[in-house]
Design a protein around this nucleic acid. Structure first.
Lengths: 140, 140
DNA sequence: GCTTTATATGTGCAACTACACTCATAAGTC
DNA sequence: GACTTATGAGTGTAGTTGCACATATAAAGC
């Protein structure tokens, strides 16, 4: 394996995925800015809506995010009333996350903005976007 | 296009790339921890080494990173003497970034650690890693 | 040359990120 | 049931990220 700086810069998967992530996040942030939420907040809303009643740790895991990071990201969303937490009747340690009615409405309103960014990103991928997702999903 | 929350969670390229980026960064961070640098710092050293004399803005662009983020990330590296800035004789606005001798030595020592993380990440990709890189490179 | 515009960079601020540590509850062992 | 271990979550702290704004230099228009 060639380990000259130039070869590393060209081949490093960490740098490649970080660069792609930063650029993609900016695009989705721009698209969602009119709704007053970031791409990260939108992802949280989607993750919660897609898996009703999942615990904080499960959502964090699904997002590949540190659990404590999610804890803090939830705070403003909870304050604004778009998400809420429920006690788990079977396990007092768990916090089950749910979308409020307001949160559901916000998600519905934000979806077209997401869709625009999603389509733009897909359009830029030469191969099928499904292939890109498959690869990204493998990178865990 | 299906825009139910579950469908969005499954198809969203932003969420997918963010998740992959967080997980990959953690792996490279772990690998480089013995060297006392993060994956981001390693990437900066590589980018500077691979393009000698490039300006701050050029390096930031190459990394898909906000220019101001790079400015701040450079500060500790400069304090520790692994990178330095030179004046550009042709343009007084530009800061040309260079690796110091110490920085070059650090990069050499860190490279095997990077290589281990790189190989582990490549091994986990079912398809050829080159395909993953190509897709990530397209996501800009 | 002087004004206007463009470029390269730095700073204020606010939010995101995660490691180390702590606390509370559940599960397992005897 | 008491003790040990495992699990789910929150907080302290420190670093990362980037938008809005400000500054300095260069280039362009006249």
């Amino acid at each position: 394996m060639n380990t000259t700086p130039a070869a590393i810069a060209d081949s490093c998967l960490c740098l490649a995925v970080m660069r792609a992530a930063r650029r993609t996040a900016r695009r989705f942030d721009d698209a969602l800015r009119p709704m007053g939420i970031t791409s990260g907040q939108f992802s949280i809303l989607v993750a919660i809506a897609a898996s009703k009643g999942a615990s904080l740790g499960e959502i964090a895991d699904r997002m590949g995010m540190d659990r404590t990071t999610l804890t803090r990201n939830l705070k403003p969303l909870e304050t604004e009333g778009v998400i809420a937490t429920e006690a788990d009747p079977d396990d007092a340690r768990r916090r089950r996350l749910v979308l409020t009615q307001t949160g559901g409405a916000l998600l519905t309103l934000a979806t077209p903005h997401w869709q625009a960014a999603q389509k733009a990103t897909e359009a830029q991928l030469a191969g099928p976007a499904a292939g890109a997702r498959a690869i990204l999903t493998e990178m865990e």
